[in-house]
């Protein structure tokens, strides 16, 4: 029974990773850049929802909407100001700019809201569902996190596969030049991708803070790195891959913490990533691209 409860909390942590990883993966798939500032967008989302709930006294779902709105605007602004002028620049230049943006957001948050951690309000209550004569108890937070993740996945898959914008996105990720010739506004599609990715980051922020209720300017960096790992794990650029990678990472992390060692859990998670990449060099669900000579 203990195993099942660890598995479920792993699933819930993995759901958060999966939602963050989606943001990484979509941006990578379309803009071909590693957006290191993504973790800090999560942090901003956490602060916005925190202030919406504490200062404004909004219920959590309105706070969530406010955070999604704020992060979407933030993501599009970052893209417009910092990444768009570098469309033709070498990928390392874009990477360094993303790092600059990450520093900017982190230090800006520290300046505005101080470095000390804040207690995040309990959004989903302390309720629990008890099963098997009370041997297994699952908190509402865990269930809501998993459900939100499933919902996000379904919506996103429908959006990518069924809408016109979605197919334009797929076209851009395959060949930007050809997409332009087909009359697709590539710049607009990239902006939309950043908007969606950042909106997802805000959802992830609320879910993450409901599980680990502290908000600080460095909140986003570790989940950011982990989710990036998850995206690569599942095959970067692939949406089911991000889900699979995120869930696998969350479960592995929780189970290692429970059964092997708390201190070494990070090392083991990253070691598993390396082993997976050695066996499947483009991640679990990544497409294998043969090299043209």
């Amino acid at each position: 029974m203990a195993f099942l409860s660890y598995l479920i909390s792993g699933l819930s942590l993995g759901s958060v990773y999966a939602i963050i990883a989606l943001g990484y993966s979509m941006v990578y798939g379309i803009a071909k850049m590693l957006n290191f500032a993504h973790g800090d967008v999560i942090m901003i989302g956490a602060y916005v929802s925190y202030f919406a709930m504490t200062l404004m006294g909004f219920p959590f779902y309105i706070a969530l909407l406010v955070a999604v709105f704020a992060c979407t605007i933030l993501g599009v602004t970052i893209e417009r100001l910092a990444y768009k002028p570098l469309r033709q620049a070498p990928s390392l230049a874009v990477l360094i700019t993303a790092i600059g943006v990450s520093y900017f957001l982190q230090n800006g948050a520290q300046l505005l809201w101080s470095a000390s951690a804040k207690m995040y309000p309990n959004a989903f209550g302390n309720g629990q569902i008890k099963m098997f004569n009370g041997e297994l108890s699952i908190s509402y937070t865990t269930i809501i996190t998993i459900l939100v993740c499933i919902l996000v996945m379904i919506c996103l898959t429908l959006f990518i596969n069924k809408t016109k914008t979605g197919s334009a996105m797929r076209a851009c990720s395959e060949d930007k030049g050809a997409a332009t010739l087909m009359g697709i506004n590539v710049n607009k599609i990239i902006s939309i991708t950043f908007a969606i990715g950042s909106g997802l980051a805000a959802i992830a922020a609320v879910l993450l803070c409901s599980q680990y209720p502290t908000v600080s300017p460095t909140l986003g960096s570790m989940p950011g790195i982990k989710a990036f790992t998850a995206a690569v794990f599942g095959g970067i650029g692939s949406i089911p891959g991000a889900l699979l990678g995120g869930l696998a990472l969350g479960i592995i992390e929780t189970l290692t913490k429970a059964y092997i060692s708390t201190q070494l859990s990070d090392a083991i998670v990253f070691a598993v990533l390396i082993i997976v990449l050695l066996i499947k060099p483009t991640g679990l669900l990544g497409k294998k691209i043969s090299e043209k000579v």
Binding site: V232, L273, P281
Partner: peptide
Amino acid sequence: KLQGDYLAIVTLAFGQIIMSLIN
């Protein structure tokens, strides 16, 4: 054995592993 961004992420992972082990 890996290439491009995958190589980058594995070096990142090794950096984290080394830090975690020395910790």
